[in-house]
Amino acid sequence: MTTKLQYSRMPGRSGLVVRDFLWMSADHLLSVRRNPFSESYRRFYFADTQAIVVTELPNSLAPTGLTAAVLFIVTAAALMYTWHPVWASLCALLSLVSFFVSWRSADCACYLQTSVSTEMLPSLRRRVDAAKATALLKAEIERTQGSVSAEVLEMGPPVARTARLATSKPALRHSSGQMHWMAFALMIVRGSISAISLKGAASIPLGIAATIVGTAILLLLILAAIQQRNSDLPVGVRRLVYVTLAFYIASGLASFAVSIYIALQLGPRATSQAMIMENPMLKAYGLVDLIGFLVLGCTGLILMWRHQRSVRTPPPLDLGNGG
């Protein structure tokens, strides 16, 4: 008796060589792990499923991967400009890889609990997929078991199961990230000033404005780095602050190096500011500086906006129950 089962594909997948999928049958969920030569199966019957827990995780890899992708593209463009097609192709390839990694990186974890085990569903590692899959699963499980009434929920878990809240880990301090908002916004202003200078409209007032804004960014970034310690700001934002500080320092060092290089190259022939500004090295530096500030600033603002949206006025901390 070979029974042919009817399975339908669920959202979500993970892995490249060893891949994980979810399939749904009339009475169970099938978790499939496939390598090139075999498949292994785990079955979770709807009648036995006790709970599904989805936790959003900080996606620290996404902003880093995106930043790396943009920097690789800029480097590839610069290499093409200086006619190094092989290295430019390599950089373009690396930017694609970085983009793919940031696009596919995990940002949530999903666990399914039965009476005998708690199993991770590896294919549900993206929030969008997890939301779709849990909606489908919830409907099927509730069709099999019915739904939990409000009275049962109010009573809480069975007495034997009641667990005490863990208080070993201190609660995180909420931070609105004002310093971050200002720093990232000023970085876009700084990038815009660089763009104006690069278009040939460099002037002394513009240079003074760039210096003031740059100093303000540096101070704000240092304050933000202090403020974000033990706060509930996403890991992505926190790391971006450090990346930005590193970029700022690298930019300053590069500026110094480019200045010395131009001075050595032109020497006494540098008769006018226009001649210095036309130097390709200075232009390349200005372009990288401009893109760096704009990309980091925009990324920071987007991450801050996402953080603000995800906070959604959380309920007040209730640590008293754990005593």
């Binding site: 989805v54 959003e56 739904s147 995180l172």
Partner: peptide, 14 residues
């Protein structure tokens, strides 16, 4: 309650 991560906990009669 501890790490403030958004959580969705679906519980069923089982």
């Amino acid at each position: 309650p501890s790490c403030r991560a958004p959580v969705l906990a679906l519980v069923f009669p089982a």
